[in-house]
């Protein structure tokens, strides 16, 4: 079925890490499709090349599935957006290759989207927030950010590893396994529910920044000492790490005096973290929303939506300049579509 020409649609491809996602959104922000395939390693963490191989193998299938779900034809696409960074090189390049091929074949413009900006923008779209403090916690990022003077500014972030990364490594050290629909963070969360004893762990808040590498080392050391129940360790890790996160978020709120708080990213799915932030937000009379899982984890819809916002401001890139940007910081992105 061919759509009437007035409906403009953006196809977004997300491929920064272990997820390959395709989103189809119309320019009004209606999600027509949001399809995803996750690479699950047999052992260890995400090997970039293995993940990229998974993406290459599944790209065609996921893109077709998105078109079927949205009940549209490739010719209905107005613009193609892709996650240009930050992320793992091989994964980014695989996503970018698919996006370039589509854009070139359909003869439509290409937009490069910053993955972190996309997380914030889709969060704003689905919650209706306009100017939130965003806490974005995932396997690759731990950032407290808010918009100011043309860009998203980072108020606090991890000085070393991301919290999701920290939880994953700890879980693997403990011999826990990731399953379909059950990320390691969720396994840790379930164990933590059975924890009772609080074990001492370093609480390292540095100004508005955080550090998790020493925290991880301490956790692993306690684990190897075999003196504590795994449930108690998971419980303590969550309690201490989430207290740190809530504290820096609270500091950023007090500092910026914003009245909306948005939680997103994979770790944002954790109920205990959600509760802590809720208590804090209520104390400050701040509106608080958790981005629904399908838009909080890495997904194609967020890339498509941010692609639309950028496209409306003419921020398209020629294919020959569409290099991926592995270390593209959130603060480097101009966001003219946001009203300051």
């Amino acid at each position: 079925m061919k759509r009437c020409n007035s409906t403009k649609i953006c196809l977004g491809i997300e491929a920064t890490a272990d997820d390959f996602g395709v989103g189809l959104l119309d320019f009004e922000g209606k999600v027509l499709a949001n399809v995803n395939s996750t690479f699950i390693p047999e052992t260890g963490g995400i090997h970039p090349r293995e993940a990229a191989r998974h993406h290459a193998k599944n790209a065609g299938r996921i893109i077709s599935k998105a078109f079927q779900t949205a009940k549209i034809e490739p010719q209905d696409i107005t613009v193609v957006a892709f996650s240009q960074g930050p992320g793992l090189g091989p994964c980014l390049r695989t996503g970018a290759t698919a996006a370039r091929a589509l854009a070139s074949y359909l003869n439509v413009p290409l937009v490069g989207v910053n993955h972190c900006v996309a997380h914030i923008e889709i969060g704003k779209l689905v919650t209706g927030f306009t100017d939130p403090i965003t806490l974005y916690v995932s396997g690759g990022n731990t950032i407290v950010t808010a918009f100011d003077a043309g860009r998203y500014r980072i108020f606090g972030e991890t000085l070393d590893i991301a919290l999701g990364n920290c939880l994953d490594v700890f879980a693997r050290e403990a011999g826990l396994r990731q399953q379909e629909g059950m990320p390691l963070g969720a396994v840790v969360e379930n164990l933590a529910k059975k924890g009772e004893v609080l074990v001492d762990l370093p609480y390292s808040v540095k100004g508005m920044d955080l550090s998790f590498s020493g925290f991880l080392t301490a956790g692993v050391r306690l684990l190897r000492s075999k003196k504590y129940r795994l449930e108690d360790l998971c419980f303590s890790i969550q309690e201490v790490a989430f207290s740190m996160l809530t504290e820096v978020t609270e500091r950023a709120l007090a500092h910026t005096e914003k009245i909306e708080l948005l939680l997103t990213g994979g770790v944002g799915a954790n109920k205990r973290l959600q509760t802590m932030l809720k208590i804090m937000a209520d104390e400050h009379d701040v509106r608080y929303c958790v981005v629904p899982k399908q838009y909080a984890l890495d997904n194609g819809a967020m890339i498509a939506w941010t692609g639309i916002l950028a496209y409306k401001y003419g921020l398209i890139i020629p294919i020959e300049n569409s290099y991926v940007r592995l270390k593209w910081r959130l603060e480097e992105v101009d966001a003219p579509w946001v009203k300051g």
């Binding site: 960074g85 930050p86 991890t158 000085l159 592995l326 270390k327 910081r329």
Partner: peptide
């Protein structure tokens, strides 16, 4: 050194951060 340790820092690429 601390900055280079951070996430996605442009100093790592050897160019000046804006």
């Amino acid at each position: 050194e601390i900055e280079r340790r951070g996430r996605y820092v442009s100093e790592r690429k050897g160019r000046v951060q804006r």
